[in-house]
Nucleic acid binder design. Structure first.
Lengths: 155, 155
DNA sequence: AAAATACCTGAGTATTTTACTCGGATTAGC
DNA sequence: GCTAATCCGAGTAAAATACTCAGGTATTTT
């Protein structure tokens, strides 16, 4: 099963979008700085997110990205599916040819696990994450850090 | 999160052990042939399984491996933990230093997911797997295939 | 219209992890 | 003492991942 930095970055970036939605489009440069992710790498991820209509890109000065639809209709599973190919835990990608042309001994177990994970991630929306205390805490911390950086830069 | 061929092979091999427990120790050569896994690779996995006391190794002719304790007390999570380092979904391995020295925005989400997965895999024991119809079906299929191979070889 | 901003794209690369091999040593049964 | 098996460590090939780089394009501000 694939759950790597790629999926984690994508969810983090989408959550950043959701958190700053009210101030208009958010540029990748901002997200990159706030979340400590390479901007070029983010561009690749957002290309996929855009293809899946999870975000809208707005070009030009003052541009950036915004959510493609309301945050309560975007689940974590949606985001991960968009950038990974899937969260499948089987070796064969659900095709049941894991061993030679047959199912392997544990095929069904991994299929059940995949279902479980997918369901868990489907039940968590971006809006729900925004409301979480743990997210708000980190959010506030990041805001003060960014304003610190801005102060530093202006000296 | 790490759930790759390694963990899947380990569970499959342990299940093979559980299925053939009654006939005395099972050699890695048999498992390798039946499950289509490289024997040398199995040796590495079983070294870890042995260190975690999930199996006992018996050397010499007629030797092989047997379960270290009853199959109803060995969970799939036990097996995966033994060969992977963990099924942790966080980037930081639960250390909360995912971004610089702080928690990243989504740390708690991945921690929750890890808990979920771990719980699911903890609730499935080897004995439960043995009883599953899907496992029994593949098991019977493998037995006939192996006897076919033996017949072929003896001609 | 020019400049600046920021998205957009594709190709390429370094690193890491994984899956697997190889050679040999050790142990136990016949 | 031969053979079958576990044990052990080092090394390697291939794949995936994370990331860079070099450009291009659309849009807004001036």
């Amino acid at each position: 099963m694939r759950l790597t930095t790629r999926g984690r970055y994508a969810v983090t970036a989408m959550l950043d979008l959701a958190l700053h939605y009210e101030h208009g489009p958010v540029s990748l440069a901002e997200i990159a700085k706030r979340q400590g992710i390479s901007q070029s790498y983010l561009e690749q991820l957002f290309a996929k997110l855009r293809r899946n209509r999870l975000v809208d890109g707005l070009r030009g000065p003052g541009g950036g990205y915004k959510l493609g639809r309301p945050g309560d209709t975007i689940s974590v599973a949606d985001v991960i599916d968009a950038v990974n190919e899937s969260v499948d835990a089987t070796r064969c990608g659900g095709q049941r040819n894991c061993q030679d042309e047959h199912r392997c001994l544990t095929h069904d177990l991994w299929e059940d696990l995949s279902t479980q994970i997918r369901q868990f991630l489907s039940e968590v929306s971006l809006d729900q994450l925004v409301k979480r205390q743990s997210v708000q805490a980190v959010h506030r911390l990041q805001e003060t850090q960014v304003s610190d950086l801005q102060t530093e830069a202006s000296i």
